[in-house]
Write a protein that binds this DNA or RNA. Structure first.
Length: 971
RNA sequence: GCGCAAGUGGCGGAAUUGGCAGACGCGCAGGAUUUAGGUUCCUGUGCCCUCGGGCGUGCGGGUUCAAGUCCCGCCUUGCGCACCA
């Protein structure tokens, strides 16, 4: 038997932790009351001063289980949530599962096991791992996207979006312009003749259109629409992907398969309608600048003009330019190889007197164009990246007409112009654009300088300089009979040019976006079915609310048909298409048409669908009448009275989740999609908040070292031994040298450390404290298992300060706290409060350790000091805090105990150390009263021996910053 | 190439507004307790030193009585974007 049977060991910690976890669960300790809805408890809500919604990114329940990196953010939000509970807030914190997803489906394909089974098994494992961490989650709200009660609302939201159009003219209640509105209102406008029909139906009245034609018109406006468009097709995955899911080198983010552009009929979300608001409203949320920038770049808004160049083919070439001011310098045009006008512009024979390089060595333009198009199509994006950026292209044989001066400019095709951006065609201004300059040089094209640097008398011109001039300057060579830009600066010239073009119908000022609409359908089994059916004419109809959810059918085979990853000519075949009985149905949609035969949509929604809005369901998960009761949404997420820090003056607060913590890998995808859906729901009147995430904090990652032997094989990191230190350190495994690398934790790297290992060896509280003390939350940092003992020692000392290790008796004394300890205590309270509130958990833990160490040095710990410390430890190490709190004689949980408040009057020191510097170097120290005056301190300092010795030649100046510093500068 | 962030002991990291660089922890060294190991406790721990002091926050300049912190120029690493018209 050990001499210290009541020592805080991993084993005892484990007993304490699981016991408290059971108690919390049984008592519903973390249930947050709602003001309305099925759980309405306004009385309980009324007992709180304020409310707080804390959110973690929605986890996917991976079969691999968690490693020690995963809980970092969950612990951080838990500490923050617990701290806020202790300051009197009604805190909503919970976690559900983003449970649709590719891995479960792929596993199902391999094993024949239903993905639901795999997914649910994984959730059980993950839930156990997370529960053991002691997170203060409201377990009633642990929703799962795969549950029909949940995806019923995912489908409902889809309907809302499908049944809406974007009215760019509408004025919102918040004063902004542009709003989603029900499609029925658009139909009414057409019916009443208030809105002109699209060009296709020009001259006809709404009533004269057939049903199908009316449907077609409306489909052109819906925010969710099916369209035949170029999409990213990954034959190896058997599905199409959104632009956001494609890596820089043109492969799938999942699985790294080649992706091809193919024309397919697919569901799209009209996210581009929201481009401006998505960009502008970033100003109103508190997010890292880095993430805001990434979203702005993705949206890629640029201001410029559309300009038309007449061509012999009849149809003009329309280009987008951000520099309409440079139109006089346009000396040629370039179309993307896939541009639709290319065939019409390709002439039968080369014009006379053209440089040989224009022809690409071909006998006719047709041959040259065909060869170039083929080469461009064959090149994957990867190959385009790898090649050096020498400009290539061929001449079409045609000339376009410059709208400003009638010059004939040759039209080329070249792969440096992308079909996917702008209009897929550019006017090339070699003097002002480096790419155009390079092309012009390569193809012996004229270069006209139309902008000169300001005050540059002897500027030799761009040709002499060998590069385009892209700086600010003044216009030259830019005039015709009715427009003279010469001498004007850039900004004025742009405005003048746009006005001139618009007057003549040659172009117009416009805004272009890089962002495209969001491809929303996938050819997979394990996702939400679309609540859409097609009638025998092929028209899409929404399944009415009353018939939701449209549940996933059972199928014999979960896999979409996959193909040779390189087979670009293949096309998708979704697994649901094989469920014939499910696909072909007779339904009464309640639209007056009675029972009809329909075919169900066989694509499913992407994984983003369920994760786009889960935070709303957290607010009211049991509500069967609405996705969230309006009062609950308003309570938890409604706009706050003051805008976030850093928001421009005068903006309204958009509301949203008070704190969202998660990795930056979702900066564009999830965070953008969720914002889009949220804004649609706001526009349609379902929400009071305009943004989903009022404050987003991007956490760092916990990384790890991995070791490889000389053959490059990973060896178990836990068994590697280190020799030496610093730069001369070397590593061996079983005596053989191994090389260290730094990066992710992964099975194949043999460096995974799991939370379960840590619970077993140290306990959950120790693990929590360690993760929080490793460094700032936003920083990535390496995991080092051996350092965790520091956190264990801290909790052991804390335990020992309260509990006798031999007898198990509480050993605090009922005496008053001495003045020194009291000062340390109040200083700790002040610092820890501030640190917890600002997510500075590493420094909070450091303060707690300092205070605990101070108590350790006392002969006996006074109750007040112990209780204060226990309360402050509560957020970061909740189990030991509860246990000590209870042993100290409290019957109520410490979870809602008021957080200690610092007494200002107790913070003041009796004396402070004043540093005496001579010429800025510390040369002496003296204890002084904190209230010493500047004059007193100056005299005191000048009287010191060291100062006298240094100032024999006199004093030049003395800087006094009472009471902490005096700096004497000798003459 | 463009943009952003970061470089502090052997390691992770601390340092309101410019005002004692290295809090706290790991590791390491020494001591006490212990048969021993472990544990626990105490002491020390930036580098150099002739023990007066000198030098130190990626590098080089600058501003200042005073710079990790501000300014200019570089270097390195990480992240994002990348022929975006």
């Amino acid at each position: 038997m050990s001499e210290t049977p009541h020592r805080y060991t991993a084993e005892l910690a484990g007993q304490i932790e699981t016991a408290w976890q059971d108690r919390w669960e049984a008592q519903g300790t973390y249930h947050a009351p709602n003001p309305a809805g099925p759980w309405a408890d306004p009385e309980a809500v009324g007992r709180f001063d304020d409310h707080l919604l804390v959110l973690d990114m929605f986890p996917y329940p991976s079969g691999a289980g968690l490693h020690v990196g995963h809980p970092l953010g969950y612990i951080a939000t838990d500490v923050f949530a617990r701290f806020n509970r202790m300051t009197g807030r009604n805190v909503l914190h919970c976690l559900g599962y983003d449970a649709f997803g590719l891995p479960a489906e792929q596993y199902a394909v391999q094993t024949g096991q239903h993905p639901r089974k795999t997914t649910e098994d994984n959730i059980v494992i993950m839930a156990r791992q997370l529960r053991r961490l002691g997170l203060g989650h409201d377990d009633r709200r642990a929703i799962r996207t795969i549950d029909p009660d949940y995806y019923r609302w995912t489908q409902w939201i889809f309907q809302q979006i499908w049944n809406a159009w974007y009215d760019t003219e509408a004025v919102r209640p918040d004063g902004g312009t542009g709003q989603a509105r029900p499609i029925a209102e658009l139909e009414a406008q057409f019916e009443a003749g208030e809105r002109v029909l699209p060009q296709e139906y020009a001259g006809r009245a709404w009533a004269d259109l057939t049903n199908a034609e009316q449907g077609h018109v409306l489909d052109g406006f819906r925010l969710a629409y099916a369209s035949e468009a170029p999409v990213n097709w990954a034959p190896g995955l058997g599905t199409v992907l959104s632009n956001e899911e494609i890596t820089n080198d043109g492969r799938s983010e999942v699985g790294n398969y080649p992706v091809f552009r193919t024309n397919l009929r697919q569901w799209m979300m009209r996210i581009t309608a929201y481009a401006d608001r998505l960009a502008d409203d970033l100003d109103r949320v508190d997010w890292p600048d880095k993430v805001k920038t990434m979203q702005r770049n993705w949206i890629g808004r640029s201001q410029g003009a559309r300009v038309d160049f007449a061509t012999p083919a009849g149809e003009a070439i329309s280009v987008f330019t951000t520099r309409p001011d440079t139109l006089f310098g346009a000396t040629f045009m370039v179309l993307a190889p896939e541009h639709p006008l290319v065939p019409a512009l390709t002439t039968d024979a080369w014009p006379a007197d053209i440089p040989a390089v224009w022809t690409g060595g071909a006998a006719t333009p047709g041959e040259a164009i065909a060869a170039y198009q083929l080469a461009a199509a064959r090149k994957s994006d990867v190959e385009r990246q790898m090649e050096d950026k020498t400009k290539t292209g061929v001449f079409t044989g045609s000339y376009a007409t410059s709208p400003v001066d009638g010059r004939q400019v040759p039209v080329f095709i070249a792969d440096y112009v992308l079909m996917g951006y702008g209009t897929g065609a550019i006017m090339a201004v070699p003097c002002g654009d480096q790419r155009d300059f390079e092309f012009a040089t390569e193809f012996e094209l004229p270069i006209i300088d139309i902008i000169a640097p300001r005050d540059a008398g002897d500027w030799p011109g761009t040709v002499a300089e060998g590069k385009a001039f892209t700086g600010d300057g003044v216009m030259v060579n830019s005039a015709n009979d009715t427009l003279d830009l010469n001498g004007l600066p850039v900004a004025e010239s742009k405005a003048a040019m746009i006005a001139w073009l618009e007057e003549r119908g040659l172009g117009e000022g416009t805004i272009n976006y890089r962002m495209r609409d969001w491809l929303f359908s996938r050819q997979r089994y394990w996702g939400e079915p679309f609540p859409i059916v097609f009638d025998e004419d092929g028209r899409a109809h929404a399944v009415p609310d009353s018939q939701l959810p449209v549940e996933l059918p059972e199928v014999p085979d979960y896999s979409p048909k996959t193909f040779d990853p390189e087979d670009a000519s293949s096309s998708p075949e979704p697994p649901l298409a094989r469920a014939e009985d499910w696909v072909n149905v007779e339904l009464d949609l309640g639209d007056g048409r009675g029972v009809q035969r329909y075919r169900r949509e066989t694509n499913t929604m992407p994984q983003w669908a369920g994760s786009c809005w889960y935070y709303l369901r957290y607010l009211d998960p049991a509500n069967m009448q609405a996705l969230v009761d309006a009062a609950n949404e308003d309570y938890w997420m409604g706009p706050r009275s003051t805008p976030v820090e850093g928001a421009p003056a005068g903006v309204r607060d958009p509301g949203g989740v008070d704190l969202y913590v998660g990795g930056v890998e979702h900066a564009v995808l999830h965070l953008l999609y969720a914002r889009f859906w949220h804004k649609v729901l706001y526009d349609l009147g379902h929400l009071s908040s305009e943004e989903p995430f009022r404050r987003y904090f991007s956490q760092g990652y916990i990384q790890a070292y991995a070791f490889r032997d000389e053959r490059g094989q990973a060896v178990p990191a836990a068994e590697v031994e280190e020799q030496g230190e610093g730069e001369s350190a070397s590593f061996t495994w079983q005596g053989q040298p191994v090389a260290r690398e730094y990066g992710k934790m992964g099975k194949s790297l043999k460096n995974i450390v799991t939370p379960d290992d840590m619970y077993e060896q140290y306990g959950a509280d120790t693990f929590r404290v360690y993760e929080m003390s490793m460094g700032p939350l936003e920083q990535s940092k390496p995991w080092e298992t051996r350092a965790i003992v520091g956190s264990q020692r801290f909790l052991q000392r804390l335990w020992r300060n309260v509990v006798d290790e031999e007898t198990g008796e509480v050993r605090v004394v009922e005496t008053a706290v001495d003045a020194d300890t009291e000062r340390v205590m109040h200083r700790t309270i002040a610092a820890v409060r501030e640190d917890y509130a600002s997510l500075g958990f590493n420094t909070a833990v450091a303060r707690l350790i300092e205070f605990n160490n101070a108590l350790t040095k006392l002969d006996a710990v006074p109750r007040e000091a112990a209780e204060t410390l226990v309360k402050m430890v509560g957020p970061v190490a909740p189990h030991i805090a509860e246990e000590l709190w209870s042993r100290l004689g409290h019957t109520e949980s410490v979870v809602y105990a008021p957080f200690p408040e610092a007494d200002e009057t107790k913070l003041v020191e009796e004396t402070v150390t004043c540093v005496i510097q001579i010429k800025g170097k510390v040369r002496d120290r003296v204890e002084v009263s904190p209230s010493i005056t500047e004059d007193e301190l100056r005299e005191l300092a000048l009287a010191r021996d060291k100062v006298k010795a240094a100032t024999e030649a006199g004093v030049r100046t003395v800087i006094v910053r009472a009471p902490r510093l005096v700096n004497v500068v000798p003459a």
